[in-house]
Amino acid sequence: MSPLSQNEQLHADSLSEIENCPLLESECRSTHLNRPLTTILPEEYDEAWEGVRFNEGVLSCRLRFHELGAKWETLGSLSKVKGEFYLIDFHDALLSSDPGTERGSTDFHREFLSQLRPIDRTPRSGAGIQTYIRMQAGVDDLELWYSDIADIGKSPYPPGFIKLDIGYCEYLETLLLTKGAYGWQYLFSDISLGRGDFSDSANNLENMLRVFPELFPDRDYSSLRPRLEARL
């Protein structure tokens, strides 16, 4: 196996933090490395992606793990926090199916859905939560979109999808902090968590910011607090 890159080592260490934390019950998984991202031409996977390119930032921070992820929850008297993530290698992401163009009610909806490929998901819980990268030609920073409950998103996009205001590298960086706590992606979206149907996500994130500084004292959560407060 080729040596881990600096970012790959950070994520392997983060997975070990979850697995070795005595106050978390967890199922963790890490598999072999795939071929480097530099060999990928998106149009080899779909001719509609001619002109789609991963920029140098993505090339520098990408992870080559075939799969890396965990499902976990706090134990004992700690405030209840749950989470899950399973990062998908770009090769496998591009081979995955889109969310289903039949869900689109307009030509724009169907085109948009055909551009989405999963990079993170929640397979063990069956929650159906996924984060997608949008494959668009001529775009310097490929967009990330999050899908959770049906009642999110704004026109002209189909319901059930909301754009994140972070790119792929920042997504991975923030995952080192949140460990995939359910709903963390909402901290980087234009949404209010004050609605009743977001109470579970809001409570999970509030508890995360209460508990995680104790569980992972070497990590700094100060950047996430104002984001949550702005959405409550």
Score class of each variant (00 low, 15 high):
residue 1 M to S: 14
residue 4 L to N: 02
residue 5 S to H: 08
residue 7 N to C: 12
residue 10 L to Y: 11
residue 15 L to V: 07
residue 17 E to C: 07
residue 19 E to V: 13
residue 23 L to Q: 13
residue 23 L to D: 12
residue 23 L to V: 10
residue 25 E to G: 06
residue 26 S to P: 02
residue 28 C to S: 15
residue 31 T to Y: 10
residue 32 H to C: 14
residue 33 L to A: 12
residue 36 P to A: 11
residue 42 P to C: 04
residue 47 E to Y: 11
residue 49 W to A: 01
residue 50 E to D: 10
residue 52 V to W: 07
residue 53 R to A: 13
residue 56 E to C: 12
residue 56 E to T: 11
residue 57 G to C: 08
residue 62 R to A: 15
residue 63 L to V: 04
residue 63 L to W: 01
residue 66 H to P: 04
residue 69 G to F: 01
residue 70 A to M: 02
residue 70 A to P: 02
residue 76 G to E: 09
residue 78 L to Q: 07
residue 79 S to N: 12
residue 81 V to Q: 01
residue 82 K to Y: 02
residue 83 G to N: 00
residue 84 E to M: 03
residue 88 I to E: 02
residue 89 D to Q: 04
residue 90 F to C: 11
residue 92 D to H: 12
residue 95 L to R: 12
residue 96 S to P: 01
residue 96 S to R: 08
residue 97 S to W: 05
residue 97 S to G: 14
residue 98 D to F: 09
residue 99 P to W: 07
residue 102 E to I: 15
residue 102 E to A: 15
residue 102 E to D: 15
residue 104 G to N: 05
residue 104 G to T: 08
residue 107 D to H: 09
residue 110 R to A: 12
residue 111 E to S: 15
residue 111 E to K: 15
residue 112 F to Q: 03
residue 114 S to Q: 04
residue 114 S to V: 03
residue 116 L to C: 07
residue 118 P to F: 06
residue 120 D to F: 10
residue 120 D to V: 08
residue 120 D to T: 12
residue 120 D to R: 05
residue 122 T to C: 08
residue 124 R to E: 14
residue 125 S to A: 03
residue 125 S to Y: 01
residue 129 I to R: 00
residue 130 Q to E: 14
residue 131 T to R: 03
residue 134 R to V: 11
residue 136 Q to H: 10
residue 137 A to S: 12
residue 139 V to R: 06
residue 140 D to K: 08
residue 140 D to S: 13
residue 143 E to H: 09
residue 151 D to T: 15
residue 155 S to G: 09
residue 156 P to W: 06
residue 159 P to Q: 11
residue 160 G to Y: 02
residue 163 K to D: 05
residue 164 L to K: 08
residue 165 D to Q: 09
residue 166 I to Y: 07
residue 167 G to K: 03
residue 167 G to Q: 08
residue 169 C to W: 06
residue 170 E to C: 09
residue 172 L to A: 00
residue 173 E to V: 12
residue 177 L to H: 03
residue 178 T to W: 00
residue 179 K to E: 03
residue 181 A to E: 00
residue 186 Y to H: 08
residue 188 F to S: 05
residue 189 S to T: 15
residue 191 I to A: 09
residue 193 L to T: 00
residue 194 G to Y: 04
residue 195 R to W: 10
residue 196 G to C: 10
residue 196 G to F: 07
residue 198 F to D: 00
residue 199 S to T: 14
residue 205 L to D: 00
residue 206 E to C: 14
residue 210 R to M: 12
residue 211 V to A: 01
residue 213 P to D: 05
residue 214 E to W: 13
residue 215 L to S: 00
residue 215 L to D: 02
residue 216 F to T: 11
residue 216 F to E: 12
residue 216 F to L: 11
residue 216 F to N: 10
residue 217 P to S: 10
residue 217 P to A: 06
residue 218 D to V: 04
residue 218 D to T: 13
residue 219 R to M: 15
residue 219 R to D: 10
residue 221 Y to L: 11
residue 223 S to G: 10
residue 223 S to L: 13
residue 223 S to I: 12
residue 224 L to S: 04
residue 228 L to A: 03
residue 229 E to C: 11
residue 230 A to M: 05
residue 230 A to T: 04
